[in-house]
Design a protein around this nucleic acid. Structure first.
Lengths: 334, 334
DNA sequence: CTGAAAGCGCTAACAT
DNA sequence: ATGTTAGCGCTTTCAG
């Protein structure tokens, strides 16, 4: 069965044409007569012929590949755990494929510190989508400066030389604050880590929204952005300070769910004693009990836009950052 | 800034050696004098030199790329939603990188029906890891027959010509049944769809375990394997049949969480009225309230093993399927 | 220990 | 409308 590999020259011979004709025919070049094109294509299908991508890329100097670089904060090489991030990647994948590109899944471990050299000079990809700004943006800056075709999923308000696509995090924070206060919260608390670009915006919006609604008694509980950390922090706080808050705006749904678990275990009623709002709208938000009110990020549109902007860059256009709309999804937790 | 691309020949000139020496030096070929090697390598680093992967692949006839093919059942192109699957991919990614390979993230949309042609002949990857056997395995079979280096994440008991790595699903089912009965369940129910290879094993083990424990009053509630479907199905069943079960073995954690939501909304107590056991041990299992007893699958080891077996195949070794150990993690839901 | 040169399979400029 | 051919940048055989 191990059929032997046909090369373009073999296919051309089978079709009784030259390699250039075969090449053009496969690429549907109108220079070639329609019948010839179809004959070659049919033959290719019959023999399960595939162009050698390596040869093609060498010749064309482009790869038709987009790299997705997952930019984790953690120093230790670690697998990703946040369902939201993975959802973003999955939606990017869809969008990339829809444009006829392939997706190289990468990370800082492989790419090292010279992203331009690795991806572009190394002819591994034509452009890169970075998922997650994280805390340190030096490498992103460096790659952008080197002229790497690049789009970043992060906070679009970032003042940087590269293109960012992301949700309106500030507005999301405002909406959350307003909603909590609307529901009767007098002492809402932000749960997260404003050191991250995106979360700093969410926190800023939260404070602004609360202030505008006349609430100044806001708190900030700074934690690692994992559900475990949220669970621990809420437990710790209840033990030490008692229940001195009546609303939580969590920086992500996973964080919100961790916090809710701690509350439920201590018989703090949600939403009666504490109103909770999350961020992201992951699948679990709807499935948790009580279901979680949250700020929905449109990952589908995000993928679409990230890819569109990257391809625009590749075709030499000047593109700029843009902000995705978000929406508050009201459920039982508030 | 846009530095211009160095090719190997340029680097060689800078180093005052021939391209062949430069090439060997970069690959740490001991044929080259140590000092020369180091001089070339240092120069390469200084100039951010990267080999052109396309040229290298064309010459070597191998890519140092492993493709991961996510095999979804759904006809419609769709983004993946199950956090467990994504966790598996993420752990494969880690393992692939650790071996110095890169990861091409693909799907049936891109690969079409001739996987051998697309990946191997097309020189896109040296081998493929398929995640998810799904219901239809014809394409996997076809690729395996064609001689494609291939490892599948699925049920290792599968009687097939290809190598499968997966958990001991049957044992998992048995453990779940025994545990439920141990906890006092007299009428345990399986929630899932035995049409999937892996789930059929889980169901088989569940039945066998129950029978051995002297319980014959098991039920099967056949549903799509999503949390939403589980939620709907449990609601529907409670409305129609009342509470005629006192234990649930869900085919996945997401399904279990959906079922639990329906139970909680109708004030059915977990675990007092109904004991619940899930499968996978996703992050949410620990965060849900009550936390979810489940069968843990070791995705880290899975990634490691999948890659190891694939690389063994690439180096011409004969490899066979193998089973990962699973463990019951007892939490509050049972 | 190092260099010269062939050739991997494709595409496109340049014939015809 | 199609064919001839050069050359993309690398690795490795063969020759020193």
């Amino acid at each position: 069965m191990p059929h032997k590999k046909l090369k373009l020259a073999d296919l051309a011979k089978l079709a009784g044409v030259s390699t250039s004709t075969a090449s053009r025919a496969l690429n549907d070049n109108p220079l070639i007569k329609k019948e010839t094109r179809e004959r070659v294509q049919k033959l290719a299908k019959e023999h399960n012929f595939s162009l050698n991508a390596a040869a093609s890329r060498l010749r064309l100097q482009k790869t038709k590949v987009i790299a997705v670089l997952i930019n984790l904060d953690s120093e230790t090489e670690q697998s990703i755990d946040d369902p939201f991030l993975l959802k973003v990647v999955s939606d990017i994948n869809l969008a990339v494929n829809r444009q006829g590109y392939e997706l190289l899944l990468s990370n800082s471990f492989m790419a090292g510190t010279d992203w331009y050299g690795y991806f572009i000079d190394g002819r591994r990809a034509d452009g890169v989508i970075v998922v997650g700004q994280g805390k340190q943006q030096a490498l992103i800056d460096k790659a952008a400066k080197a002229g790497m075709p690049l789009v970043v999923w992060g906070d679009p308000k970032t003042d940087a030389d590269y293109v960012v696509v992301g949700s309106d995090n500030f507005l999301g924070g405002e909406l959350a604050a307003e909603h909590l206060i609307d529901k009767g919260s007098k002492n809402p608390m932000f749960l997260g880590d404003p050191a991250h670009a995106e979360l700093s915006e969410r926190y800023g919006g939260f404070c602004a929204g609360a202030e505008r609604a006349g609430v100044t008694a806001t708190q900030l509980l700074k934690i690692d952005i994992t559900s475990q950390a949220a669970y621990d922090a809420i437990n710790h706080k209840l033990r030490n300070d008692g229940l001195d808050f009546d609303g939580i705006f969590a920086c992500s749904d996973m964080v919100a769910l961790g916090a809710m678990k701690a509350l439920k275990e201590r018989y703090v009623s949600i939403p009666n004693d504490v109103h909770v709002v999350g961020f992201d709208d992951i699948a679990m938000a709807d499935i948790s009990f009580p279901s979680l009110t949250t700020i929905r990020q449109d990952t589908r549109q995000a993928g679409e836009l990230l890819v569109k902007k990257l391809l625009a860059q590749l075709s030499g256009q000047k593109v700029s950052s843009s902000q995705l709309e978000i929406a508050l999804i009201e459920r039982q937790s508030s």
